[in-house]
Structures are given as C-alpha cells and as structure tokens.
C-alpha cells in the first residue's frame, strides 16, 4: 500500500483526466468519425509507380481500351506497358513531375511496376473478351467509377463478389453453372 501514498496529486489529476467518461466519449466518437473522414487522405496514396490520374486521361479523350489494350480481345485487360505511356509522353505534355518520372524510369530501362488492384480469386476464370467484346458491357458496369479517379486507385471502385457476378448473370440470362467461371 505504500506505493499509493507516494502518488502525487498531479498524477492523480492526470489519471482522472484519462479515466474521465468525457475523454472516453471523445476518443470513441472521434476514432469512429476519423476512420470515415480520414480514410480519403490516409489511404489515398498506394504504392503505384506514378501518381496516375484516370480522370485527366479520360478528359483528354482516351478510351479505357487505349491503355488497357487487352480488354476487348484477351482474357486479361492488362496494365499499360512503358511503351504505351511513351506513345504520348515521350516528350513532355505537361509540367507534371509525375510525368517526368515516366521518362526517368524509361531512361533507366525500367518498366512501370503497376500494382494490379482489381483481382479475382485464382479459381475464377474471367475473360474480358467475353464480357466487353461479346456481351458489349461498358467497363463501368463492373469497374464502376474507377475511370473518374484522380489518384491511382488502391482498391477497386466496386467490390467484386460472387453474388454481384451472379446477380448480373441471372439478369442477363448468362450461365450460372459453377464450371462456367470456376476452373
């Protein structure tokens, strides 16, 4: 009990500060609030090689398939290779530092190490050709507003789930058997 007697009044005050229900209330409310509001800033930057802006490219009149060239004729839409970027950015189009990065990487002989954010489980066979070319689906049907993003996306704009696939497959009278998609 001797330790108790050694406690100074100041320490007791600090203790009561942290033990106060107001402190706790503030902590909980702002933690939860912070989780929602801060997420835009804290998680905004992924480890993509370039601070890429989809929206700008769209404004410039590019289609999704101009850079994701496999979207119509391959299973995989693909992420643009260095050569695709250099097709326009060989010479500077803007003052952007990020644009300069492309040429710096290219000069060093590096490829763009894009991180693919839209990924399906490995036992799913998905073909862009089937959905985009044959079923004439717009990219946004599955990918949502990813084309509007102003920073490199760190996650798909829409969550992919089997029920989402199935909903659409049922609506469109596409097959719903297991082996149509699962390999």
């Amino acid at each position: 009990m001797s330790h108790h007697s050694l406690n100074s009044p100041g320490q007791a005050g600090l203790k009561s500060f942290f033990r106060s229900r107001y402190f706790f209330l503030g902590l909980v409310v702002f933690f939860i609030g912070g989780m929602f509001t801060l997420s835009r800033w804290v998680v905004s930057s992924g480890p993509q090689p370039i601070q890429f802006n989809h929206s700008k490219h769209k404004e410039a009149g590019l289609n999704c398939t101009d850079c994701h060239s496999g979207a119509l004729d391959q299973a995989e839409a693909g992420l643009p290779q260095m050569s695709v970027c250099l097709g326009c950015h060989e010479a500077p189009l803007t003052q952007s530092k990020e644009e300069e990065k492309i040429r710096t990487l290219a000069a060093a002989g590096n490829e763009l190490a894009w991180i693919q954010v839209t990924r399906l489980p490995q036992d799913v066979y998905f073909s862009h050709r089937r959905h985009a070319r044959l079923a004439h689906l717009e990219c946004s049907v599955c990918h949502g507003g990813i084309g509007e993003s102003i920073r490199p996306p760190v996650r798909p704009a829409v969550t992919f789930s089997m029920s989402r696939c199935l909903d659409c497959h049922q609506k469109m009278h596409a097959y719903t058997n297991c082996y149509g998609c699962h390999r």
Partner: peptide, 9 residues
Amino acid sequence: QKAKEVAAS
C-alpha cells in the same frame, strides 16, 4: 472457353 470466345468475336 477461349476458342468459343475467339470464334464468337
């Protein structure tokens, strides 16, 4: 699956 898609496209 792939062959069918290619033919259909």
